[in-house]
Structures are given as structure tokens and as C-alpha cells.
Amino acid sequence: MASATQSLRRTLEGLPGVDAVGVEARAAGLGTRSIKTTSKQWAIDLAISMVDLTTLEGADTPGKVRALSSKALRPDPTDSTCPPVAAVCVYPDMVSTVREVVGDRLHVAAVATAFPSGRAALDVKLADTQDAVEAGADEVDMVIDRGAFLRGDYTRVHDEIVAVKEACGDAHLKVILETGELQTYDNVRRASWLAMDAGADFIKTSTGKIQPAATLPVTLVMLEAVRDYRIATGRQVGVKPAGGIRTSKDAIKYLVTINETCGDDWLSPDWFRFGASSLLNDLLLQRQKMITGHYSGPDYVTLD
């Protein structure tokens, strides 16, 4: 057992380092791409289709969740050409409410494993996961044990992901690294690799409850990780930045980053998601502007 732990540590700590200045400069460079006219239109529709429309509040009620779910199906009620989002993301107790509205037309994602802190016993986390899946979630967003990761107990983090993956059954597992707590890019790359090795279908930046949440350089490091992981193992893993992405301009920077890091294969809702709530309305406003030629205003998109 001790030797397995050591070998995992060697693998993770033997990954190429990430130079912080360099990765931030690269992300900033990608952020200067100028995406206009037809490309912008295409990118906005793609971004809409990649949104995991999210509400994760203590104050969530079935009424609020039903409203959000309707919006997920028809983001722009005035325009039938507007694509639906990818999924609705809620706490496990709201999963059945979402299913009632969306049926099987959208994915339903549930945060589980004692989200957002992950501070609970493993059997509680597994029960949380099973509960979500039984209620109809086909995607589970789990959090890793950051405490274990930071003290170097990679095996514990790994085994927990394996156990949760098993509890998910057929549901897709997104593993939240909470990069705002991991802090260094080296840690982000190691945690990405660890999660992928343990069976993650997606790696996700953040819970949205910790600042900073998703950033472009962190997402770039994760995209490099999934690209390298597929080269090494043949298995493709998705990426989901979550929290802090609010404008179309930001979303397009992420799409450019995918395009120039991993390429076409990840430019699909099957392989890339935005965990967001307010982003959708900005995408819709920009979409209307592209079509009509003028800006409308906040009263021309739905509030929920």
C-alpha cells in the first residue's frame, strides 16, 4: 500500500511543471483574439449549448428550480432557433423537480459528496451521490477532498473518486478540483491528472463558492492536461470551468483557448461546459444583437 502511494506521488509530482508567468501570458495572449461577425455568432450559439445552468443556493425552492429548468429548455422564448443549454445543475434534492420539467431533453447534473466543502465521511458522500442518481441525475459533480490533496494524501483523494464513480453507475462524473483552494498551477495539473486517472469523465475548476473560481489560465492548464492525458491513454476527458464567467466576451475567450489548445474535438457540449447562471443572459443579449443589429436590454431576456 505504501509503495502504491509512493508511486502515485511520483507520477503526479513528476508531471512537467507549470510556469505561472508563462501560462498567464499565454492565456492573456489567447484573450486578445478578435472574434467577429459569423465567428462570433457561431461561438455564441456553441457557448449557449455548453451552459450548465446552475442554481446552488440554500434558498432554492421547487418554484425557482422549475423556472430555471424552463429557461434551460428555451433560453430565448422569442426565438426558436436559439439552442437549449446542456444541463441544469442543482443540489440532489432538486433533481426530481428538474426532471419533471425537462424530461430527458436535457442532462440533469447534481452536486454531491457534501458539496461544497466535501467535509463528510465517505459513506455519507456515497449516499449523497446515490440519492442524486436515484432522483434522476445523469451527471454528478463531486468535490475532491482538498485537505487530503494539500497534505499529500493523493491516495485518499484517488480512492474517494473511484468510490464515487462506482456509486454513479451510468451517470457521468465531473470532479471539482476547487482550484481556488489548490492555488498553484502545479497543483491544478496534478489534481487534474489524479482525477482523470481515478475515472473522472469531466474535470471541473470550482464550486463557485470560493474565490477565485474559474480563471482562463487555470482552465488552460486543465485543457493541456486533458489533451496530454488523451495522448497518453487514449481516453478523452471533458473540462468545465465554473463560477466567475459572466460575459459573452469571456466565454468566447474560453472557446478560443479550447480551439488553440485541444482543437475541434473538445468544441462540443459533450466535452466542454460552462458552469454559470448569469452568463446565459449575456449570451442571449449578444445573440439578439447579432441578429437584429442593435442592443435590446435586460428586460428582453428572462430573469429567474
Partner: peptide
């Protein structure tokens, strides 16, 4: 699906 960048002169 491919992300083409329209001219941005």
C-alpha cells in the same frame, strides 16, 4: 465542427 476566425482587420 471547426472554429474559423472571421477576418478582423
Amino acid at each position: 465542427m471547426a472554429f474559423e476566425y472571421a477576418p478582423a482587420p
